[in-house]
Amino acid sequence: MKKQLQITVNGELRQALVEPYYSLLDTLRDEMQLTGTKKGCDEGDCGACTVLLNGKPVCSCLVLAHAAHDAEVITIEGVANGQELHPVQKAFVEHGGLQCGYCTPGIILSTVGFLESGEEPSEENIKHALGGNLCRCTGYTKVIESVLVAVKATNQESEE
């Protein structure tokens, strides 16, 4: 039986009436029309569906929608500040961190979650943070370069 739930998505309180077996991913895409979050494997292998759940990157395909009741979720639609891209998005655009773009929302959210976690943003830690995101186009070199650029940009911003 469908039940009502509420989730704060990108700062906005949203409600939906969903089946008990619905995933957070399907709720975002099908009930809230937030299709920026992608469905790749639907079994926690590819990371395309990564969103921030209460500030932490998770595979939204593995979260029961009702388990996210009352939670805060950030999707790719909520990363930019209005028309201004997030430093991570900017770095990916300017440094070729994406090609077809399907995996990109998930990689951006993993990166944003990593940069906000306070972990030392070394290349090694970045690779561990992004290990759960598959990209079949770039070969990852440009992805890692873009993240390193974003790290620099974020550091400069915080120094200013």
Partner: peptide, 12 residues
């Protein structure tokens, strides 16, 4: 724990 799946799964 660090070898377990990926960050997105370890958080859940």
């Amino acid at each position: 724990a660090a070898s377990f799946a990926g960050v997105q799964v370890r958080n859940l």
